[in-house]
């Protein structure tokens, strides 16, 4: 194996191991102690907040900068449909189609 291959193989494995570490800590610790109802609720709220923050970043940001208008416009259409209880399929396809059509029309 060449040096350059090793220099990529090891980092890739380390990233995989570290990520698995993050993933497995919660499930492994879960049996060790029973959580109060309040802490259980905090965990669910934390997940909701993390996912909401992911929605916001993924909708508006590319790298460290504004992603352009096509993407947030698509997400907004999808979100509005979701709030109006449209089927999931409609939400997802409408979001993608809005962004794709806006880009086709020249909106970045």
């Amino acid at each position: 194996m060449s040096v350059s291959a090793t220099s990529l193989l090891v980092p890739a494995l380390v990233l995989g191991l570290g990520t698995y570490g993050f993933r497995v800590v919660g499930p492994l610790l879960r049996d060790r102690f029973t959580l109060s109802e309040r802490v259980e609720r905090l965990m669910v709220t934390a997940t909701v907040v993390l996912l909401a923050a992911l929605v916001a970043s993924a909708a508006f940001i590319e790298g460290h900068a504004f992603a352009g208008w096509a993407r947030p416009a698509g997400v907004l259409v999808g979100a509005a449909l979701a709030i109006r209880k449209a089927p999931f399929v409609v939400v997802v396809l409408a979001a993608a189609a809005t962004a794709a059509l806006l880009r086709l029309a020249g909106v970045p």
Binding site: L51, L54, V55, A56, A58, A59, A70, R71, P72, A73, G74, V75, G78, A79, A82, F88, V91, V92, L93, A94, A95, A96, T98, A99
Partner: peptide, 9 residues
């Protein structure tokens, strides 16, 4: 745009 819409829904 589909990914954030999925998570939002």
């Amino acid at each position: 745009a589909a990914f954030p819409a999925v998570l939002f829904a």
